[in-house]
C-alpha cells in the first residue's frame, strides 16, 4: 500500500501541474500566499511555468523545518521504493528481513508525516495540546520504539 502511495506522491507534482492548466489556481485558500497570486492568476502559462511557480511558491512559503522534513520524507520514499523494487525483482527470501527493512522505512515515513502535520502551523487548531516541541519529543519516542522493533525483528 504504502509504496504505491509514495510513488504516487512522487509523481503527483507533474499531474497537478498538468491539470492546473484548465483550472487556474483558486485564490480563496488561506494557505496560498499573497505573493504568488499575481503569478498564478495571470492565466495561460505553460505547464513548466506552472510547475515552476508552484515550486517557487513552495520554496517561499514553507518553513525551513518543514522543508527539512520533506527532504527526509523524499529520502525515505526513495529508500522504500528501492527496497520494494528489489523485493519484486530478487524475491523476499529472508522474509523477516524484508519485512523489517521495509516496514522500518514505511513506519519512519508515517511518523515523519505525522511530525510534519503536527508542526504545520495550519493544523494548529487540530492539535491544541501538542506543541511543536512536544511533537518532536513524541516523534523521537515513536521512532526509537520503531527502530528497536525493526532491529529486533531482523535478528
Amino acid at each position: 500500500m504504502a509504496p504505491k502511495r509514495s510513488n504516487a506522491r512522487e509523481s503527483t507534482p507533474s499531474t497537478t501541474a498538468t491539470s492546473q492548466i484548465s483550472t487556474p489556481a483558486a485564490t480563496s485558500t488561506p494557505s496560498v500566499p499573497v505573493k504568488s497570486t499575481p503569478k498564478s492568476s495571470s492565466g495561460n502559462l505553460s505547464p513548466q511555468e506552472v510547475a515552476l511557480s508552484i515550486w517557487q511558491n513552495y520554496l517561499d512559503t514553507t518553513p525551513q523545518r518543514t522543508k527539512l522534513i520533506d527532504v527526509f520524507m523524499t529520502f525515505l520514499v526513495v529508500v522504500g521504493a528501492l527496497q520494494f523494487v528489489y523485493c519484486v525483482i530478487a524475491g523476499n527470501y529472508p522474509f523477516n528481513a524484508f519485512l523489517s527493512g521495509f516496514s522500518a522505512t514505511v513506519g519512519q515515513f508515517v511518523l515523519t508525516a505525522s511530525l510534519r502535520i503536527q508542526t504545520n502551523t495550519e493544523n494548529k487548531a487540530e492539535f491544541t495540546s501538542v506543541s511543536p516541541e512536544r511533537a518532536f519529543a513524541d516523534y523521537v519516542f515513536g521512532s526509537l520504539i520503531l527502530h528497536f522493533f525493526c532491529v529486533n525483528f531482523i535478528n
Binding site: 527496497q83 528481513a97 524484508f98 532491529v151 531482523i154
Partner: peptide, 11 residues
C-alpha cells in the same frame, strides 16, 4: 544470509 543485506542496508 546475503539475501538479507539489502534490507539491512535499508534499515
Amino acid at each position: 544470509i546475503s539475501g538479507a543485506w539489502p534490507w539491512i542496508a535499508g534499515i
